[in-house]
Design a protein around this nucleic acid. Structure first.
Length: 901
DNA sequence: TTCTTCACG
DNA sequence: ACGTACGTGAAGAAG
């Protein structure tokens, strides 16, 4: 019969290991109460990974009881050079003990002794009593306890993996020595972290060699006369006292006066019910998801934790039925508010196929079906979605609007969008998965798509109706359950107006723009492609000639070898993986012909692959248009982003690339493209929120802001002309201020020394004193509140604002300055878009808004509407929000996007 | 998947 | 002493 098992865990060493394994992110592991949890997370993983599968008969976690032990009495400098334990770890010790207890394991400590000694004593007793003993620790010195009955598991790098030390393993690692001899090795070599000396001049190699010959320190000194006279012998004689003392200090006590016996150590098993509130307290979402999946009831978080949403939820039965033609009428009884979700087989809702849908609410149950005809035909489902009296709760309203539009259905009266609300509450939670987002919001009765469908090649919608409908029902239930609590949070954040009057209406406007799409002249692109193909192959041949052989020009690695090894050029910059070959580097070596060729090749290859070929791939055959998707819940600042294709980074700065815009054309031959852009919107926002009188005056007088700034920072009179170079530098400084300036960044950008840059910034902040005051205040406020806000109360949390790491903290400080500016500009253009769409409809204009590129809007319109739109568009855009300075908008029009300049 | 490069505001 | 300008997406190479 197998021996009973005894598991002994070295609490202290593992807590330290866990803490330092995640020290870089120590400020990211914070509970809602501000408790650091990095060591707790690591320790929890360890308990789950080791104890749970182990299922020992007896178990104990041993802790140190304080600084004074029998070792400090023998050697008062023992562990003397240790830094004090960081407070971020100290505060975790008490919850660590609670966690151990909830895992069914006894904690124990004993004044005067270290955790090691408790473990040594119990291990010895356990082995004698016939137990198979396993010790888990982060301290390799504990391997001195290894025997046939005692195995020691020592954590490797991090804490997730362990080495198993048996007597054979010890012999292997210590070159044939026995576990007991580890004490003698430590006695000779000492230990810097525990701060005991060993014999001066004896290191690990010599120690092992000596012990192989003399076996132990006492035996060595008995036989010291056998040793030939040598420097080493002198050192050993001089260090005799240290050797014996160090050996004693290194020896783990195996007979400590414990007040407990083996009978007290029965392993109790995990107390799941009690772990739920414990994990909730610590915000261990992943663990809670696990418990919910095991069927444990998660709920009432809010009753004890102020500030946390209270969502009463269970993992018990959910009422989901299949919807069929025979029970369709049940839909009519759902009432005034329903939850709806349509599942697609891909993320691009312009093209993905509808798979199934669910509709219902908690009161009346949920109805799901794979039969999309139950939507498309004239059915109660269709009618409810279209009914502007029935409130709809959804996840990603824009996706639903577009997908339903493809099915001929108009979605009306969206009340709650889980995705949008979560994003506004905390832009860091910008997960696109409904389940994951629900978990973030403390709702655990739903799985993630990855759990149910798998990912990548394994993606598979369940074939069983019951499985699919259960998942969809839970998705709808999650949406419905989170509506109220998230509305409450939006209200607490003063974000209801942002949600109701900006973001939710914007979803409809964006859906409209995406559905409209923009026409692309594929013929034009094909012409460009063939011309480029020719030029590229000529360039390619020339580059091969200049290099002396063929290579992959598109490989930075191979190019680096050619330039910096074969041709012997001096590398100016390195990346993580090798030499940098970026434009800013290559532009400094254009006297070398091959570099010139490569820069040209790169430029053209980019146009060819990303823009010409990339665009051709996404033109819809049905209407010759591209239909981008604007991601409304991605950026940290409130801007939109654009994908499939990205229409916000079509070339404009360089003529060759700019011609791509010739392929973007209006949908009718006699129509035109109109572009309208805000002038200096971010600097105007800066002038507004900083309240700086000088900068505001410059904008009120409609001055050239960069020239005005140049006069100030270079000390010129008001009417002095500003040369191009000064204006360029002033412009860079203005940009720098918006980005959250640093002297280093400015210096690099305008090519002056760091000292000069510092001086320029200083002058700038003296001239624009309101800007200085604001930058100081916004950082201070971010520290106090943990977040910054835009004019429309869009919020960005900055957890790193208090980080000890300089880089993380500096980044957070720059972000604190930049986000309110970039984000407020985003607020403004979003309002303008909503107003614009509305007024185009009201006036019955045929013009359509097609694109948004952060500070500009692109329209298509019949030429006949041009005169009206040239008035209307700027007036709507510049009145979107009333600032302390005027907003200025310019328009341009032409036959193509290229010509609208 | 991660890195580098380069397109935009 | 640290080692940075802010916000994005796509393509191609290489692990």
């Amino acid at each position: 019969m197998a021996k009973p098992t005894l598991l002994l865990i070295d609490g202290n060493s593992l807590a330290f290991r866990a803490f330092y394994a995640l020290i870089n992110q120590v400020d990211r592991f914070l509970s809602h109460e501000g408790l650091h949890t990095n060591a707790l997370v690591g320790f929890n993983n360890l308990l789950d990974g080791i104890v749970d599968p182990f299922q020992p008969d007896l178990a104990l976690v041993a802790w140190d009881a304080g600084k004074t032990t029998f070792r400090t009495e023998k050697f008062d400098d023992y562990k003397g050079h240790r830094d004090t334990t960081p407070s971020e770890l100290v505060e975790q010790f008490e919850p660590l003990r609670q966690m151990v207890e909830l895992h069914g394991i006894k904690n124990y400590q004993l004044p005067g002794f270290e955790a090691d000694d408790i473990i040594g004593t119990i291990a010895t007793k356990g082995a004698a009593a016939g137990y198979a003993v396993t010790i888990v620790t982060g301290d390799r010195d504990m391997t001195q306890l290894v025997s046939d009955d005692i195995t020691v598991w020592v954590t490797k790098k991090g804490i997730s993996e362990v080495d198993h030390y048996t007597p054979a393993m010890v012999a292997e690692v210590y070159d044939g020595l026995t576990p007991k001899q580890i004490i003698d090795i430590k006695g000779l070599q000492g230990d810097t972290s525990d701060n005991y000396p060993g014999v001066a001049g004896i290191g690990p190699k010599t120690a092992v060699k000596l012990m192989k010959e003399y076996h132990s320190i006492p035996e060595m000194y008995e036989r010291i006369d056998e040793m030939k006279t040598s420097k080493q012998k002198e050192k050993l004689i001089a260090g005799k006292e240290d050797a014996f003392l160090s050996r004693e200090l290194a020896t783990i006590e195996v007979d400590a006066p414990l007040e407990i016996s083996l009978d007290d150590l029965n392993y109790q098993g995990i107390r799941y019910e009690e772990l739920v509130p414990f994990y909730q307290h610590l915000d261990f979402k992943a663990q809670l998801v696990k418990l919910a999946n095991m069927g444990y009831v998660i709920g009432e978080a809010g009753s004890t934790d102020a500030g946390e949403t209270s969502v009463n939820m269970t993992n018990t039965e959910l009422n989901v039925r299949e919807l069929t033609v025979t029970n369709l009428s049940a839909i009519e009884e759902l009432g005034a508010e329903i939850d709806f979700y349509l599942e697609l087989d891909g993320e691009n809702y312009h093209t993905a196929a509808p798979v199934a849908f669910v509709i219902g609410n908690e009161a009346h149950g949920y109805f799901a079906s794979r039969d999309i005809e139950l939507l498309t035909q004239r059915t109660p489902v269709n009618q409810i979605l279209n009914d502007d009296q029935v409130k709809k709760n959804v996840f990603n309203a824009k996706a639903m609007i577009v997908a339903l539009h493809r099915l001929g259905i108009t979605l009306k009266n969206v009340n709650f969008d889980l995705l949008l609300a979560s994003y506004l509450l905390d832009t860091n939670d910008n997960q696109n998965d409904l389940g994951a987002l629900a978990h973030e919001n403390n709702f655990f009765a739903v799985k993630t798509d990855e759990e149910v469908y798998g990912k990548g090649a394994k993606f598979q919608i369940p074939e069983m109706d019951a499985d699919l409908f259960e998942h969809l029902g839970r998705k709808a239930f999650a949406i419905g359950s989170l509506a109220q609590p998230l509305f409450e949070k939006l209200n607490e954040h003063a974000q209801l107006e942002l949600y109701e009057t900006i973001e939710l209406p914007l979803s409809f406007v964006l859906a409209d723009m995406e559905i409209t799409g923009i026409k692309v002249d594929a013929e034009r692109l094909l012409q460009m492609r063939s011309k480029l193909t020719e030029r590229l192959s000529e360039l390619e041949q020339r580059i091969y000639q200049q290099a002396g052989h063929e290579f992959n020009i598109q490989s930075p690695k191979q190019l680096g070898v050619i330039l910096f090894e074969e041709m012997g050029l001096t590398p100016l910059k390195k990346t993580k993986t090798g030499f940098s070959t970026s434009v800013e580097v290559l532009e400094q070596m254009t006297d070398v012909p091959i570099v010139e060729s490569i820069l040209m090749y790169r430029q053209l290859a980019k146009i060819q692959s990303t823009y010409i070929e990339g665009l051709l791939r996404v033109i819809h055959g049905s209407d010759s248009k591209v239909h981008t998707r604007y991601l409304q819940t991605l950026t940290q600042t409130g801007r939109l982003s654009s994908v499939d294709p990205n229409l916000q980074n079509i070339p404009v700065r360089v003529e060759e690339g700019r011609r791509i815009r010739q392929a973007f054309i209006p949908r009718e031959p006699d129509w035109i493209i109109i572009g309208a852009d805000y002038s200096q919107i971010e600097l105007r926002v800066l002038a507004h929120i900083t309240g700086d009188p000088e900068m505001q005056a410059a904008f009120r007088d409609d001055q050239d802001i960069h020239a005005a700034t140049a006069r100030r920072i270079f000390g010129l009179a008001d009417d002095t002309p500003v040369d191009a170079e000064m204006r360029r530098k002033a412009k860079a400084v203005n940009f720098g201020i918006v980005y959250g300036i640093s002297d280093f960044g400015l210096a690099r950008n305008i090519g002056v020394t760091r000292k000069e840059a510092k001086q320029i910034i200083e002058t700038y902040l003296n001239e624009y004193a309101g800007v200085r005051k604001w930058t100081e205040e916004i950082i201070e406020s971010a520290r106090e509140l943990g977040y910054v806000e835009t004019i429309a109360h869009r919020r960005r949390y900055l957890p790193d604002i208090k980080a000890k790491n300089f880089n993380l903290r500096s980044f957070a400080e720059r972000t604190a300055m930049n986000s309110p500016i970039q984000g407020s500009a985003a607020d403004i253009i979003k309002i303008a878009m909503i107003n614009m769409n509305k007024i185009l409809q009201e006036r019955g204009l045929k013009a359509k808004m097609l694109l948004q590129v952060h500070d500009e809007l692109i329209f298509e319109a019949p030429a006949s509407e041009l005169a009206e739109l040239e008035e209307l568009i700027p007036s709507v855009m510049d009145s979107a929000m009333q600032l302390a300075v005027p907003l200025k908008v310019a328009t341009h029009e032409g036959k193509t996007w290229y010509d609208a300049k």
